[in-house]
Simulated assay, not measured.
Amino acid sequence: MSVPPAIVFTDWDGTVTLQDSNDYLTENLGFGYPKRKAINDEILDGSKSFRDGFQEMLDSIKQPFPECIDYLLKHVQLDPGFRKCYDYCVSKKIPIIIISSGMKPIIYNLLKHLVGEDAAENIEIYSNEVEYFEKANDLGKTWDIVYKDDSDFGHNKSLSIKEYLVSKNLDKTNFEAHYKDSKYPTLFYCGDGVSDLSAAKETDLLFAKHGKDLIIYCNRENIPYTEFNNFDDILSKLTKIMDGEGIEKFIENK
C-alpha cells in the first residue's frame, strides 16, 4: 500500500451536512428545540456530558428507526462544496474518513442519497451503531443507540483516528517499519461541535465551522484552527496546502 499525501477526517452532522440529523430529529420528532437547546448549553458549560445529553435527546424520539431515516432523507441537505472536495480527494488519492457521534445507518443512507453510491462505498465511517428490539418482520419499531466506547462522548473520536491509522499501518510508531523513505501524510480534521475537540488534537490542521460551538471552545481553550464556512473553503485551502503552501499560514488562534 502506498502512502497517501494527506488524510481528511471529518465530522458528519452539521459539517458535511447543513443540518445535524440528530438535532433535527429531536427538534421535529422529539421534545423540540427549547429543551434540546437547554441540554446543549449544559453540555457546553460542562455541567452535563455529551453522552448523557445526547441520550436524553434520542430517548424523546418515539418513531420507528426506518421512519426516522426516511424523514431525514427528505429534509437534510448536503454542504454544496462537499462533492467537489470529495472528487478532488479521489483524484489525489486522499482518503476521506467520517468520524461521527451519530449513528452509522443514518450516515450511510444520507451519504448514499446525498453524495452517491460511489462515495458511500469508498468513505469509511467510524460512528455509533443502532440496536433493534423486535423480530425481523418489525425491525426498527423500537431502537436505541449503541455507543462506540465508554467515554463521556459515547465515541471518543481521537481513538477512532488512531484505530484507522493503525489499520493502515500509518500510526507514527510503526510508520517507518512499513514505509521506508516515505513521507508521513498530512492529517486534517473538519468539525463543528465540542465532540470534535479530541479528534482535532490528533491532526495537523483543524477546520472549524464558522459560528459553531467548536470555535467557541477552541477560543476558550486556545486551540489552533482555521475557520471555514463550507467545503468550498476547505477545498481551496486543501488545494493550496497540497500544492506546497505551508499549513502555518492558515492557522488562526495560534
Rank of each mutant, 00 (worst) to 15 (best):
I99K: 11
G116T: 14
P105I: 03
I96Q: 02
P80F: 13
E121V: 15
N109H: 02
A119G: 02
I98K: 04
R83T: 13
S101F: 08
G102Q: 15
I94M: 04
E134C: 10
A120Y: 11
V130W: 03
N109K: 05
I97T: 06
P105F: 09
G81Q: 07
Y126F: 09
P95W: 06
Y126H: 09
C85G: 10
H113N: 03
F133R: 01
E117G: 06
N109R: 10
K84M: 07
K135F: 15
S100C: 01
S91A: 12
G116Y: 12
I97E: 03
I125S: 13
A119E: 02
E117V: 11
I125F: 08
K92Q: 14
M103Q: 00
A120S: 05
K92T: 03
I98P: 09
I123G: 10
N122P: 04
N122S: 08
P105H: 09
H113A: 07
N109P: 00
Y126Q: 12
A120Q: 04
V130S: 05
I125E: 08
F82W: 14
L111C: 08
A119N: 09
F82E: 14
E124F: 13
A120K: 00
I106A: 11
I123Y: 06
Y88C: 03
S91M: 01
V115H: 06
